[in-house]
Design a protein around this nucleic acid. Sequence first.
DNA 1: AGCGGAACCTGTCGGC
DNA 2: TGCCGACAGGTTCCGC
Length: 271
Amino acid sequence: MPELPEVETIVRDLRKEITGKKITNIEIRRSSIIQNPSMDFCDSVLNKRIKTIDRTGKYLVFELTGGLYLLAHLRMTGKFIVESLPVSDHVHNRVIFHLDGDQALIYSDVRCFGTIEKTNRSGLTRKLKHLGWDPWDKELTPEKLRKRLSNRSVAIKSVLLDQHCIAGLGNIYASEILFDARISPFKKSNSLSLKKLAVLIHSTRKILEKALENNGTSISDYRRVDDKQGSFQNMLKVYGKKDSPCPVCSKPILGKRLNQRSTFYCSKCQK
DNA sequence: AGCGGAACCTGTCGGC
DNA sequence: TGCCGACAGGTTCCGC
């Protein structure tokens, strides 16, 4: 489900709602969500307060009191919802954190690919260090990107989805960014000029910023913490637009599969 | 090392 | 109506 703008929107919403709250009870309804399960998950987390909530790539990081961290990944269909107690008995509610003030932080997930794990500072660093650049990282320059891509012969879209390179992009924004940059999704990564890579970086930031302003893209599952929708789906130019006219040249948008993922583009505008 | 494909799990939609 | 396959915003693992 969620890519960087959706995760960031959820983090901002959660920050407002539950920073400083104490976890007073935990219900685990689907144990596979909790990684490295051990008897002490509940013991450790119980009665800790939520100090801060942040995002790294598509991960959510909850800093708790006592040097503890919860690292969560929503994968395809995960959501965080804040409700007043008592919690509605929805089948997709997988993990429920009761908070003081009669609130609950609910982890809901249709497909159960998502994960939550308890860790400490060094564990957190270890888990996140493999992630690539944040899209706004000053270190992300055309020169460094070209060097990073020099041994990659695969399509540029595949590399955009690779979290080890740039962290936070997913299938929707990869198509949108490449359309904005006028680069074919099938273009070999190591064949892009410095100039093209500069455009690519510029388009990445531009599209993500616009998506953030719109609180993300709600196509099927994604909802904000309060169940409101994002609105970037209204601004998509190519994703899901197979056979629609290209907004620039009116040629029909193509939809093809690339590495098992649907990919949308205009063959005239993107070279 | 890099690459493509399968797997994880549940739900929905379109075609027959 | 019912069944069946394809597909869904992500990541990891496996074999080549």
